[in-house]
């Protein structure tokens, strides 16, 4: 129990830090601290927590659906597929409303992830390390297509923004889509049992009366929507969906009815922490949270990879 108190305190501390630091000082600025918080600091803090929480949840769903701990949306081509969708809609209808772009990106992300699941069904389960490798290569292929298109139509700049998640551009009026993640998270919680059952495998899920295909599709839709939301508003954040669920699973197992809220909160906290580090490391300049998370997340992933053998399949 004390663990949760400490966790809650840490999150509150992170929020407080995030609200108080930035290029403009909260106390001496002419702009007024209330205005600064409302327009810039609060949106930024909320965006980091929402994006992080959403991606961590998406990671859980992907891991349960393919029964492999070393997978996450970033290792299943989901963000690349979303970018492909965004590129296509940007080329085809540059003036389309944001929600239309969003929807196209989500649909593309869903198709890309569905293809990955198809692929995953053909990868031998005997070696759990193989699937993330396949996912990386698959993401690489999609990425090559995206880069090639962006290059040939001179949209590399857009691509850079989508590929590298950061929160410096987040202000009031430019992040509100992310609140959609809160809705999706609530939806996911109602599915918690079903997703745990997915993790038992297709046969077990079917013999418990779960419509396996439908549940996977539903989970997939949520993952795609979350990833697309994050890519469109702040850009891709690697490893969040991998690192956070793995740590929570190590600490308290995989019964999602109990754990999903913890996963979401920790994901939010982790990304917020990365954003704060990014703001501080070369103050007053900023380093994207995605960069910080890529380095820290990769380090944690490596640790997980090599700490895994004790725990059977990981």
């Amino acid at each position: 129990m004390t663990r949760w108190i400490w966790g809650g305190a840490a999150l509150i501390a992170l929020v407080a830090i995030s609200l108080s630091i930035g290029a403009a000082s909260l106390w001496t600025s002419d702009l007024g601290s209330g205005w600064l918080i409302a327009v810039s600091r609060f949106p930024r803090t909320a965006a980091a927590i929402l994006a992080g929480g959403g991606l961590a949840l998406a990671g859980v769903v992907v891991q349960q659906a393919v029964q492999n701990r070393f997978v996450e949306p970033g290792l299943s081509g989901t963000p690349e597929a979303a970018m492909l969708g965004l590129l296509v809609i940007t080329l085809w209808a540059p003036g389309a409303a944001l929600w239309i772009k969003m929807a196209v990106a989500a649909l593309a992300a869903m198709a890309g992830t569905a293809l990955f699941l198809k692929l995953a069904a053909h990868v031998p389960r005997s070696d759990p390390m193989l699937l993330p490798l396949v996912g990386l290569i698959y993401a690489g292929i999609l990425g090559a297509v995206v880069v090639w298109i962006a290059w040939s139509v001179d949209l590399m700049q857009y691509l850079g923004v989508w590929q590298m998640g950061e929160f410096s551009g987040v202000v009031q009026g430019r992040y509100e889509l992310l609140w959609g993640i809160a809705v999706l998270a609530a939806l996911l919680y109602t599915l918690a049992d079903r997703i745990t059952i997915l993790g038992l495998g297709a046969d077990a899920a079917r013999s418990l009366g779960l419509d396996y295909g439908q549940t996977v599709a539903l989970g997939l839709a949520v993952v795609a929507a979350i990833t697309a939301l994050v890519v469109v508003t702040v850009g891709a954040l690697p490893f969040v969906g991998l690192v956070v669920p793995n740590i929570i699973s190590r600490l308290c197992g995989d019964n999602l009815r109990r754990n999903l809220p913890v996963v979401a909160v920790c994901g939010g906290g982790a990304v917020l922490a990365a954003d704060i580090v990014g703001r501080l490391v070369r103050f007053p300049y900023e380093v994207p949270a995605a960069t910080i998370f890529a380095i820290a997340g990769a380090a944690v992933f490596l640790w997980l990879l090599h700490a895994a053998p004790k725990a059977g399949n990981g």
Binding site: M129, P288, T291, A294, A298, L302
Partner: peptide, 24 residues
């Protein structure tokens, strides 16, 4: 496979470092 994955992830980490330096 664990070693390959280690190599690949190290690659991601290095790319992150490169990205960090490019920012500067």
């Amino acid at each position: 496979i664990r070693m390959i994955l280690t190599g690949v992830i190290l690659g991601v980490m290095l790319r992150g470092l490169a990205g960090l330096m490019q920012r500067l």
